[in-house]
Design a protein around this nucleic acid. Structure first.
Lengths: 235, 235
DNA sequence: TTTTATAACTTGTATTTACAAGTTGTGTTT
DNA sequence: AAACACAACTTGTAAATACAAGTTATAAAA
């Protein structure tokens, strides 16, 4: 699988165009037949690319009409956040590394089930704090298995996405995952980290992300300050 | 569109088999070619059905291996809940109607934007309380536009899914949606309804669900008691 | 002017065919 | 017995083709 499929190439091109604003919200993408001609593909291939965009929530298809571009929302990893007060996009996204990636054994009371290979390999551990408009909103604890990742503990993660590093340097891509959500009372540590007001609850998330490498899953525990922002998702 | 597509039929059949336990977790579905032969379809059609199952999180495809059945989780509408204490499935799901569907005008301070047609039609309003193992966990407030729904206020909703009634009686199907999640302090009313302990926060959700009918969106506000259960999702 | 029909688009569904690529068991060879 | 090669599966990608069904603009008819 060293060659990238055609439908994937078209998907990447259109995705880039949408997020960069070549097509704006409400615009129609070129029709399937036009895309066929432009990129020299057949319709099934073009449709495969468009279906992937639909799955990502970037476009919306209408029979007889066309492919409509949807409003892209700001993402942190594969999570979207949206301001609750206004429709204004989320700005000034900053990442602070609280714990640089280090090699550890898996925690004894780890919430997730691990495969044997994951268990044996040990884990890489890191903590981050994310800021929106200079306010901390997002504290995440990440565990990855210590395989396929030479020299990762030497890398700089400041203002870089973990996913980006995994994709570009290690050819690891996130394909899907599962998550569990709860509203909880914060511990003292969490309240201080997220500058929470007294009595303000936090959104707690546990997620397991599947990748293209077998036995390589990313495990995250996330605390989210939902006072001024909300987790946003479309499906 | 009065005839159901073939890929949809196969999807419904396989879905039923999976949720009824004909195939258990970890089982392999019949291969694509076997399904072709069994249901007299071609492979692209079969693959279309399987892709839909993947999207639903019911199966997982592996090149060279087959289609692996995943653990189905209990759903309320299109939301899944999972017990936090154990892997035991969620039992004893009960629905109580707090407010039978009535015709109203849209609330003045409605959180969502409405299309003109929706605004003009007025809305149907209902409130429900859902129980898991005889404990209230789920309070939802629903607004639907008052179109396409003759005699809906006369229908009984006890222990029936709103989605099921919409699908079977009005040919309305939910295709997707968007949602916003927060952790909030409950009001006194919510605390009483959900039997919340003092200081226990609630998971708050706003969702807009798109359907196959234009201008017919379902708007829900949901309060979820996440003390013993969690919202579960796969993607 | 308004209504109606139609033509020219759009996406949706489906068939048929072909080969690539990953997985697994079965042999044969060492 | 162990290692290797291969055949027989599996799903993944892709082409060429056809018709159905929904949308929209245009032209003809009332």
């Amino acid at each position: 699988m060293d060659t990238i499929p055609q439908y994937r190439k078209l998907y990447e091109i259109l995705r880039k165009h949408i997020v960069k604003g070549v097509y704006k919200e409400g615009d129609l993408l070129p029709s399937e037949n036009e895309l066929c001609a432009a990129y020299e593909m057949t319709r099934p291939t073009v449709r495969h690319a468009l279906e992937t965009l639909v799955k990502d929530g970037l476009i919306l298809k209408k029979q007889g009409k066309g492919s409509i571009v949807r409003k892209p929302s700001q993402n942190i990893g594969i999570l979207s956040i949206s301001g609750t007060a206004s429709a204004v996009g989320v700005r000034y996204l900053k990442t602070e590394i609280l714990q640089k990636p280090i090699v550890q054994t898996w925690p004894g009371d780890f919430e997730f089930e691990l495969s044997e290979l994951e268990q044996e390999s040990g884990c890489i551990y890191m903590e981050r704090l994310r800021y929106v408009e200079d306010e901390p909103v997002f504290y995440d604890i990440n565990h990855l298995p210590n395989i396929f990742l030479p020299r990762i503990t030497q890398r700089s993660f400041e203002n870089k996405s973990l996913f980006e590093i995994l994709r570009k340097n290690y050819q690891i891509e996130v394909l899907g995952g599962e998550q569990k959500l709860k509203a909880v009372k914060p511990t003292v540590k969490i309240r201080q980290l997220l500058h929470l007001k007294p009595g303000q609850p936090v959104l707690y998330m546990e997620r397991k992300l599947y990748t293209n490498k077998e036995n390589f899953n990313i495990y995250s525990t996330i605390y989210f300050n939902s006072e001024k922002h909300a987790i946003f998702g479309s499906f």
